[in-house]
Design a binder for these strands. Sequence first.
DNA 1: TTTCACTTTAGAATTATTATAAACTAGAAT
DNA 2: ATTCTAGTTTATAATAATTCTAAAGTGAAA
Lengths: 135, 135
Amino acid sequence: MKKIDILKKLRTSGLRPTKQRVEIARFLFEREKTFHFTVESLNKLLAKKTTAKISLATIYNTVHSFKTAGHLSEVEVRGNKSYFDTNVSNHHHFYDSETSELIDIDANDIVIQKIPKAPNGKKIKNVEVFINLKN
Amino acid sequence: MKKIDILKKLRTSGLRPTKQRVEIARFLFEREKTFHFTVESLNKLLAKKTTAKISLATIYNTVHSFKTAGHLSEVEVRGNKSYFDTNVSNHHHFYDSETSELIDIDANDIVIQKIPKAPNGKKIKNVEVFINLKN
DNA sequence: TTTCACTTTAGAATTATTATAAACTAGAAT
DNA sequence: ATTCTAGTTTATAATAATTCTAAAGTGAAA
Ligand SMILES: [Mn+2]
Ligand SMILES: [Mn+2]
Ligand SMILES: [Zn+2]
Ligand SMILES: [Zn+2]
């Protein structure tokens, strides 16, 4: 992903490209593979990777803006901490509770044959599969 | 579920049948259908239902003991609050984000045809499906 | 250069949960 | 029945994750 795309991510999130936001955006989006993270882990990684200091509040704010804009998704998986995901397409996850790690599963790699119909008056928004792992 | 079974739930959880614990256990287990709850919602419901005052700490402790003993399961579903489930068998859920409600889906009502194999050195512990609902 | 809306940040506040430690209670032993 | 004691309850403190607040900083445009 090029720098121009980073600026686009920010623009489409309604965010001005400040030093801090560009650092965060580059760290999140300039990568090949999906990145799963918590705000805590992102904060630590950013502190190691970059010279500039970025406050936790800015990380929370920026991550939420990206989520609202659809550039990040949130994965419900582990207790009382939020997990975020740079993969915003419809997909599934392995979850390794030993390491607290998520691994992507492509939507096409899981095929559901039989599914119940939604309760009265409701519709199905999406289906999420978690495959929990053990050693 | 009879009172004798309630006492068994407590005994098998390593808990003496105190007034508070019996109240909690009866409220959780003397019902036909699955009950999904948070500690907060359980606390409110118990406060309405019973005369005796039960402290929040006791509710947390008792719920955790039941979970450890396998009489309750925890469902990862909504942000930063824990959801518990009186259905401890392998099953799936509808999740209605409008009402924050879970609805059980019998394991047999979802059939998965194709599933990826676990990553190197890992095994599949279980598969959980969430069907998110909208209006 | 001044302006001013937007931004960052430290720290306070809030929420969910867990830990602590003093007062209480159920049984067992006398 | 009374005593004893390990287990229990509870208020409150501590912790953890997140959100809020308000003061200081920044930068593009006037
Ligand atoms: Mn979660
Ligand atoms: Mn959760
Ligand atoms: Zn993912
Ligand atoms: Zn359930």
